[in-house]
Design a protein around this nucleic acid. Structure first.
Lengths: 186, 186, 186, 186
DNA sequence: TATGAATGAGCATTCATTCAT
DNA sequence: GATGAATGAATGCTCATTCAT
């Protein structure tokens, strides 16, 4: 019974990732249920409403970002490289998940999601700070500037645009954030 | 009569600009009507449907961009400066008008709007080309990359964010587009 | 001025005939106005509302029927022939005018139209009675049966069906109304 | 669950029959829902749109006609009697159901309904052919003439008119279709 | 607990009629 | 008188959420 519920929860989350990734936050609950092979009611047993379901997905994805960020910080990766790697990860997720790109940059500080957001925010702060201290990043930038800069491009792009193009954009923005006169390959 | 209609049409357009700017393309016709102080029917007298109303607004805004682009091209402004100025204008409009930011980057080539889009596209092409020829802009960029890069940030930003911040973002992206080794103040 | 108004009234009636003939009673007032080359307001100056405009048209058409009926009665045309001729006229009008076919069979006795209807009814009564007295028509039929029998076919037919076909139908129904054993060519 | 849905579906269909029967194809979905004692959404769960709901009703009614036609053909009922019986059934249904009378004569050949229509058409063809071969029916008539002839009267009649009257009309038209000189009781 | 049917507020659009110019 | 713009009630359909089975 417990096992069944857990399995269903996973099916729901998996389906929701796929469906919200494709259609963004406006995806229909019915479609999520279909994809998951369960009934809508089941969605609502596991999540009180659409926002909560979407929130759980976003939190999960943010977890990945947190993981990468902690990893590069723990391993004392070179500051600019550390920063770049995290931003690439962040953008990569947004690229795969339209809903993530929609929701994250607009996130407030309240709720569970708010907490995840604050955590990510703290880590980004640290990454930025280190890169700036190392003289690699322009000083007039803060963590709060990163989501709009790196995730907007996804929102402003038709659903199926190529990863290569997206990586090129990331590179351009990274270059823009680089400290002047500090131009080695980023 | 003519005067009244024109006045109302202006009220409708004005209200639509405000409402679509704030809520994006999903704004409700009813709200536009209320804001304009007219009944919904009046909206439909002036525009056959929501898409047409929104389209007219976008076309109008694109007109401003075209104007600026033609102006800088006509006056032979220095290529990078010319390019920057147009992108600043484009982003400024998107900043004021959420619907513009939503719609423009996803615009197809058909319809009246498509035509405006192609016109803008052609002008951007020219601006980019000249900047690249002058050695000021990285060569791996085309006109089609600009909307995602410059307008995405608006979509990824809560409605009321400050012009100053937005200008900073524009500057960062401009810096990223600058040709390496070409760093004088952009 | 009077002349202008009269001319406009005629234009309106003419247009209304065309438009209602084609689209039936659901035709849009706007379309009538366009066809007439006047503004909707003008329609409402001449007729208090759609029903009244349509009513005037119907009354006019009924006038033609009345004319034919009176003519054949005055000229003492052979009873069956007289009856047939009037029914052919009635059906011919319905065939040309969808709105007529829609409205006439459902007409009540009140209003101006009611009066026209009663007049037609009386004449049909007379025609039927004479045909029955002459032994040419089955006795179990009254004037009130004629509109459904003769005009229904028009309603049950796609807009552009051929006059020949319609005449064939009229003939079939006339044959059905003929007194048994009274079969000479009807 | 299944039971509830079926019950509701039946309620919806029942209500739709009543409402469409009375008001024809322009009946409001809201009214159907009210009559059924359900919310509009329920209508749309069972049928994708108004046309589909109406279509299902018509198809169902056409099924009855097909049934009767097949029955009389299978049992080799005397050709004229067979034909008459089917036409009486067809007209009876139209009499009970205004929407049926509206829609059927104008039916095209496409869609599911088109198929039912073609089936009915084929059977009527057969009935007509046999009656003509038996010398009972005038030869200048085809299956496609029957709907306008028999169903028009319903459209040209105020909603509540008596079955007796309608049967009289059917008889008159049947008499009209009878072959001249072939007058035994029809 | 899962199901999926039911709910009903919400929204774009139409069109007869009114009324300011 | 004429114009045609404005009104606003009406209608088909959608979809997040609830709840009977």
């Amino acid at each position: 019974m417990r096992a069944d519920a857990r399995r269903n929860r996973l099916k729901v989350i998996g389906a929701a990732q796929v469906v919200f990734s494709e259609h963004g936050p406006d995806a229909r609950m019915e479609e999520v249920a279909e994809k998951a092979g369960v009934a809508v009611g089941t969605l609502y047993r596991h999540f009180p409403n659409k926002e909560a379901l979407l929130g759980a997905l976003i939190a999960d994805r943010l977890g990945h970002v947190i993981e990468v960020a902690r990893d590069v910080l723990d391993r004392d990766v070179e500051p600019w490289e550390a920063f770049s790697r995290v931003m690439r990860r962040l953008t990569g997720i947004a690229h795969e998940d339209r809903a993530f790109a929609h929701v994250v940059p607009l996130l407030g500080d309240e709720g569970e999601l708010g907490e995840a957001k604050r955590t990510v925010g703290g880590l980004l702060e640290e990454l930025v700070h280190k890169a700036q201290e190392a003289g690699k990043m322009r000083p007039d930038v803060g963590a709060e500037d990163l989501p709009p800069l790196f995730m907007g491009m996804v929102l402003a792009t038709p659903p199926g645009f190529s990863p290569a193009r997206q990586e090129r954009y990331v590179q351009i923005i990274l270059d823009g954030l680089r400290h002047r006169g500090a131009h080695e390959p980023g």
